[in-house]
């Protein structure tokens, strides 16, 4: 067993787990945070994307032990109370999801990217999503949602 103590969405969480425990299962099964999905288990689909110290990572390709002492943000940590995060709001407004399976990963990948590049072009957004697959939407409305969110986030800051 190895001791893992992490800050998840602002709260300290800790547990003793087997060293081989993958971060995605630590979040889902140990901590009960099932918003993060496991799609492929092979670091291909991006549905398991979370933020580690603010940067996107695939939680299926990381040990919970590697996150020890660090800060994680999952989809559950995006809204503030009843106030949806601008990305969540724009996915809703722009029909950026159909089945919704890829959505938590899309939103976390986009959140990480918009911090690096707050005013991306459409091409930038498409490239930034190269590690995230969607089997439903054809990406069109996902890209639209992210561009829309970038606009409203920039507006909120101005």
């Amino acid at each position: 067993m190895t001791h893992v103590s992490v800050t998840v969405n602002g709260a300290m969480r800790e547990a003793d787990v087997e060293p081989r425990t993958l971060l995605v299962y630590f979040l889902r099964e140990t901590l009960g945070l099932t918003g993060t999905n496991a799609g492929c288990d092979t670091s291909s689909c991006g549905s398991c994307t979370v933020l580690l110290d603010g940067e996107s990572v695939k939680s299926c390709t990381m040990l919970a032990a590697q996150a020890d002492g660090r800060e994680l943000t999952t989809i559950e940590g995006m809204a503030e109370g009843d106030q949806l995060h601008p990305l969540q709001e724009s996915f809703r407004r722009n029909h950026g999801l159909q089945c919704g399976y890829c959505t938590p990963g899309m939103i976390m990948a986009a959140a990480s990217y918009l911090k690096e590049n707050p005013s991306p072009s459409e091409g930038d957004v498409r490239l930034a999503l190269e590690g995230n697959l969607c089997r439903c939407t054809g990406y069109q409305n996902i890209v639209k949602s992210i561009l829309d969110a970038a606009g409203s986030m920039a507006g909120a800051e101005a």
């Binding site: 670091s43 991006g46 996107s56 990381m62 990480s112 930034a128 590690g131």
Partner: peptide
């Protein structure tokens, strides 16, 4: 290499 998530690790 890979994608942004891969490049973060």
């Amino acid at each position: 290499v890979g994608d942004p998530q891969v490049r973060h690790m």
